[in-house]
């Protein structure tokens, strides 16, 4: 039965895993660059761009990417200058884009369904068409990401050293920005903004504390993201009975909760081990 479920939902599962891994890989750098809030605001800007493109009846990925980039450009410039209010400014951007998205979904009528889809997505409804048109082209990001990876590592760790070494740091950051916008815009269209934010931030949060190298952190983040996606699918597969009613958990939320539980488990385990080690060393 479970095999039937997996076979029936193979495209949603594959699309979820692909987007999840890419978001987790990019998320490691989003967190390392201390730009989590920027990434989250960007995800809302990408969501708004998707809704704007739907409203305008012009559903082109390039259009969504350009629009997201244009919306985020002021924030990119402000946070690049490292002002002490950049956190507050990004939070303002986050609530602005979220509210704008809300307005746009209201304008499109059937508000509850639209909001639900914009925020939580509907991973099980990913069609064969969406897999080939949207999720499959995401695979192009892998070679580009791995090509810029060594540059991204040095630019993130020590931008000045990268510049002295002849690396065009602005170009590397620009390519990373475009990749992130692309992944986010597809992921939000298919799975909603909360899934995208969770896949971008939670795997990095889970693995960065115990990874001794960036490459290892990237591998662990990809594995963690995949495990979370599969766990979420399985959780949503089995019906739950509460108060005499039987229902299935929504898949996107189940994935997010599985990822969050994973983060809590890893940090809890680390805390316990550290506590135990301290006690042991005292004796």
């Amino acid at each position: 039965m479970i095999l039937e479920f997996i076979f029936f939902y193979k495209f949603p599962i594959l699309a979820g895993i692909t987007a999840g891994i890419l978001l987790a890989l990019a998320g490691v750098f989003v967190v390392l660059r201390k730009t989590s809030l920027f990434g989250i605001t960007m995800s809302q800007a990408a969501g708004t761009s998707v809704l704007l493109s739907l409203t305008a009846g012009f559903q082109s990925e390039i259009f969504i990417m350009i629009l997201t980039s244009a919306l985020m450009l002021p924030f990119f410039i402000i946070t690049g200058r490292n002002t002490k209010y950049s956190g507050a400014i990004l939070t303002g951007g986050f609530v602005f884009f979220t509210s704008l998205g809300h307005l746009l979904t209201a304008a499109g009528a059937n508000i509850t369904n639209h909001i639900s889809r914009a925020f939580f997505g509907d991973i099980l409804t990913v069609s064969d068409q969406e897999w080939t048109d949207l999720a499959l082209p995401l695979l192009v990001v892998f070679p580009v990401f791995f090509y810029i990876l060594p540059y991204l590592k040095i630019v993130t760790f020590d931008r000045d050293e990268a510049v002295i070494g002849g690396i065009n740091a602005g170009f590397v950051e620009g390519v990373f920005f475009i990749l992130l916008v692309y992944i986010l815009s597809i992921s939000i269209r298919l799975f909603g903004s909360l899934f995208s934010i969770a896949q971008m931030i939670l795997p990095a949060l889970a693995v960065l504390y115990f990874s001794s190298g960036v490459n290892r952190a990237l591998i662990f983040a990809a594995v963690f993201s995949t495990a979370g996606t599969i766990a979420g699918f399985l959780i949503s597969f089995y019906p739950v009975e509460i108060g005499g009613n039987t229902f299935n958990f929504p898949t996107s939320s189940a994935i997010i909760l599985a990822l969050a539980a994973g983060v809590a488990f890893i940090h809890g385990l680390q805390f316990t081990v550290r506590l135990w080690k301290n006690r042991y060393s005292q004796h």
């Binding site: 390392l32 060594p150 540059y151 590592k153 040095i154 993130t156 760790f157 050293e161 070494g165 690396i167 960065l208 990874s211 001794s212 190298g213 960036v214 290892r216 952190a217």
Partner: peptide, 14 residues
């Protein structure tokens, strides 16, 4: 930043 001493040197050789 998750790096070993060796990796800190290694990454500049790109």
């Amino acid at each position: 930043y998750p790096l070993s001493v060796k990796e800190c040197l290694q990454m500049t050789a790109v």
